[in-house]
Design a binder for these strands. Structure first.
Lengths: 253, 253
DNA sequence: ATATACTGTGTATGCAATATACTGTTTATA
DNA sequence: TATAAACAGTATATTGCATACACAGTATAT
């Protein structure tokens, strides 16, 4: 009955698992961790992660700055909880006969969606392997898509890493595109578009022989064309990942 | 001869391209941007990105805090320059007959190496598509590995995104592993190892049916085994990416 | 009943980024 | 060559932040 392992967890992580003992005496609490995290997320959604300060969050709930520290021991822990909260994603329950490719596609699609909805998510660093509950739920879902595949644990983990890192990158770019559109860019003018002209001057053929043609054609800054919608572009990489997995599975047989 | 595009660049980006005009009059400068960035990187390498403050950097060079602002307009810009400096990577010059798979492997290997060397790199968010000179050099190199392949620009960009995002994720995990080892973890005890025991209690079979077995076997927290070195594990995902590309190339023929 | 563990608050500290004003220096130009 | 303009590094001040600490009031275990 050793509970040593609880103490070894970082405070914020312990909080995320609900491992911090509820107080028995004293006045009733007027807030909750969930409430605080929700308030912080609301602020971040509207004004960016930089607008999230302990003061700001507390004020938005009608309390003083220091009251938050009765619930969450530090701002870093608050950010951790925000991160984990975003990982509470609406994955469809796994249906029986679903193909693994469809499952992984769904996984990436939902992940990207969450990152677009919470644009600040990509601004928080990934500190290491997920160890918070919702984040692990995401990993569990991803693993679930590969349940029937003849792969060992290490292979599966490696593929989860592959898919999730791709989702993150795509999520960041998608977010930037939506930001640019929302900021009033003409529809069809995208992400790096503000810099397209500058890059055409700076990315010289001599110094960037391989990149140069892509900048000139507009492919680099993701200008939309008839044959190449951004969405298709992103799907392309995902399909290559899936192809790679499929190829490996076939080779194993 | 319109130079409008220069003004439209963010200040830090303009700096990274050396577009800011050198002063003509006044006293000789006693520092340089390069010097400042190097000093900041040295601090970050030793004590982490949190230790990098304008005051700290200036003091390490023997100047006052405010003197830095004569060179770099804001701390964010300094971080941007640090990021770009790390992207000055020692890619081997492209040899003629090299196979594209070897090229992409090299690309990922060097990228991961840079992230391990500068552990803080993964703590800086990716703000969007690369637009600084060294970062673009990295992109150029990655594109160069695919020079001979019958792919259009969008396909190539998508694959660069795929490879670089994988490199970043692996780099972060590798860094964590090295950190843990350096922090005195027994060799063979890795990344999430401090939390392994906790996760064994928390990741229940009911709630995490797919993840549970991996946590129990130690595969999730990357415990090393005879058949599965961490290095091999990381290589695995990369080979699947390469397989996916190869599969696609063959299908096109 | 009362000591204890808690609540939210008010105040204080220290650090960080950065604006602004200052003194002294170099150079273009009148 | 004189001198004004543009710059260098500095000193000081402002603002906002995270957070420690002490307080007054409140619920509960003993």
């Amino acid at each position: 009955m050793d509970r040593d392992w609880e103490e070894r967890l970082p405070r914020g992580v312990a909080l995320s698992w609900g491992l911090v003992k509820q107080p028995q005496r004293g006045p009733k609490r007027e807030m909750s961790i969930e409430q605080i995290v929700d308030a912080a997320i609301a602020i971040a959604d509207q004004e960016g992660i930089a607008a999230v300060s302990m003061n700001r969050v507390a004020a938005s709930l009608g309390f003083t700055t220091m009251s938050l520290y009765r619930y969450i021991p530090s701002k870093d822990d608050l950010l951790l909880l925000m991160q984990d909260a975003v990982c509470d994603m609406p994955f469809a329950p796994v249906t029986e006969g679903r193909h693994w490719r469809d499952g992984l596609r769904e996984y990436v699609r939902i992940s990207v969606g969450a990152m677009v909805k919470h644009a600040w998510y990509g601004d928080l660093p990934i500190s290491g392997v997920p160890i918070t509950p919702n984040n692990l739920q995401v990993v569990d879902y991803a693993l679930g898509t590969m349940r029937e595949l003849p792969l060992n644990d290490y292979e599966k983990m490696s593929l989860v890493l592959l898919a999730s890192s791709y989702a993150r990158s795509v999520g960041i770019i998608q977010r930037d595109i939506e930001r640019a559109i929302r900021a009033g860019a003409s529809p069809g003018a995208f992400s790096g578009m503000d810099y397209t002209e500058a890059l055409r001057h700076l990315v010289t053929e001599e110094r960037y022989p391989n990149l140069h043609p892509l900048v000139m054609s507009g492919a680099y800054t993701e200008e939309n064309t008839e044959e190449n919608t951004v969405g298709n572009d992103f799907d392309f990489g995902l399909e290559r990942i899936l192809d790679g997995i499929e190829f490996y599975l076939n080779a194993k047989k």
